[in-house]
Structures are given as structure tokens and as C-alpha cells.
Amino acid sequence: MDHNKKLIFQLGRIGFLLDLTHVVEVVDPVQGLFDPGRSDIAQGIVAALRFRQTWIPAVDPALKLGLSAQKKIVARAAIVLHGHEGNWAVLADSVTELSFADQLIPCDIPFLLKVSAMGYYSQVFLLNNEPWVVFDPEDYYGASAQSA
């Protein structure tokens, strides 16, 4: 079951977990499939990505999260996701592996960090004693992201 699998990706030296049910495909790297001229920074869209004979919005979560990506934008990977308005893509430094949910241990966000986390992430899991932040696609693209 895809519900039981998580895609692990890295962005700005931070590890993220994404439920595999959201994922259509991983494009790595995006070079040659990328049109940065078609951006809408107000919505977090940094470019359009050519995917299956159409152009889809590519969102860079590093902008919202205040991170410095480790790779130039064209060297990064795109994770293509299902969305209410069609496919869209999230840019990542690298897509590492798949993990099973039962290998993940839930971990509370410390009280002292709850305010700084608010609006950016709400769940963290431990895998091999390392923290991984749950990436919720709705926070980054679509109607709910804009209302937030």
C-alpha cells in the first residue's frame, strides 16, 4: 500500500517525508525541462516544468521555509504531485529513497520550537535517530496554501 510508504527528499540540508500517495513521478534533474520565465513568485511558483507533453507549475518550498538549496535550480529534482488543479511539482535537492511508515517513530516538536514551526510544519518523525519533517503539499500549492 502506498499509504504505508514515504518518499524521502532533501532540501537545504533538511530531510522531508512525503506520503507516496501524492506522488506521480520523480524527474531528476529538471535541466532542459524547465522554463524559469514562467514564474509566479507570489504563489511560490519559480518556473514551469515540462511534464508529459504539458507545462506544470514548479514550486520551490525553500522560499517559504527560508532555506538555502544546496544545488542550482536546474540541477535539482522535481517531485511531480497530484493536485486538485492538476499535476504540479516540488523542487528538491535530491530524492533519497522510499521508507516504510512503520520504520518511522513520531517525535514531538519541542514546546520551545512550536511557535517557529507554526505555519511551516506540524509533524516530525525519527528514522535512524534523525529527524524528518513531514511535507504537507497543501501548504505549498493550491487554494489552501494561498489562504494560509
Binding site: I14, L65, C107, L112, L113, S116, E130, P131, V133
Partner: peptide, 23 residues
């Protein structure tokens, strides 16, 4: 030590101790 998004400016990282995150 590990980074998390939007850490406060005076928090350099977090570490994991006995399954808990520590700023």
C-alpha cells in the same frame, strides 16, 4: 545536530536525545 525549517535565529540546530528533539 540537524537543521529544521525556520529555526529561531538564536537556535543553531536541534539534536536528538532519547527520541526527543532538543534545541
Amino acid at each position: 545536530t540537524f537543521l529544521l525549517p525556520r529555526l529561531p535565529r538564536a537556535v543553531s540546530a536541534v539534536l536528538v536525545d532519547e527520541g526527543q528533539l532538543v534545541p
